[in-house]
Amino acid sequence: MPTHDLAPGTWRKSSYSSGNHNCVEVATVAAGTGVRDPKLGAASPILAFGRGAFAEFLGAVRGEKFCA
């Protein structure tokens, strides 16, 4: 999904983000979901996921597949 497709979305802080600036923002539109670092605001790179891909990503995160 191209990141420009996220332009009409509203960015919101993830409910799983902590209060110590280790947070992410997500925006959801019909085409999918974007994730960015709010410290950089609009200049932040965006990870853009199609609907199915974001569900798979969340499953991997919840399954701690990214932990060292």
Rank of each mutant, 00 (worst) to 15 (best):
M1S: 05
M1H: 02
M1N: 07
M1A: 11
P2T: 07
P2Y: 07
P2E: 13
T3M: 05
T3I: 07
H4F: 11
D5I: 10
A7P: 05
A7S: 15
P8Q: 06
G9N: 05
T10Q: 06
W11Q: 08
W11T: 02
R12Y: 00
R12N: 03
K13R: 13
K13G: 04
K13T: 14
S14W: 11
S14D: 11
S15G: 07
Y16R: 12
S17Q: 11
S18W: 04
S18D: 15
G19H: 06
H21L: 11
H21M: 10
H21Y: 12
H21W: 08
V24G: 06
E25M: 11
V26C: 02
V26E: 00
T28F: 02
A30K: 06
A31S: 12
A31V: 12
G32D: 10
G32M: 04
T33F: 00
V35K: 10
V35P: 05
V35I: 12
R36H: 03
D37W: 09
P38S: 04
K39I: 05
L40V: 04
L40T: 09
A42M: 05
A43K: 05
S44I: 01
P45W: 07
P45A: 04
A48I: 04
F49S: 08
F49R: 02
G50P: 10
G52L: 01
G52A: 12
G52E: 15
A53E: 15
A53V: 13
A55V: 08
A55C: 01
F57C: 14
F57N: 15
F57L: 15
L58H: 04
G59W: 00
G59D: 09
G59T: 11
G63H: 13
F66H: 11
C67T: 13
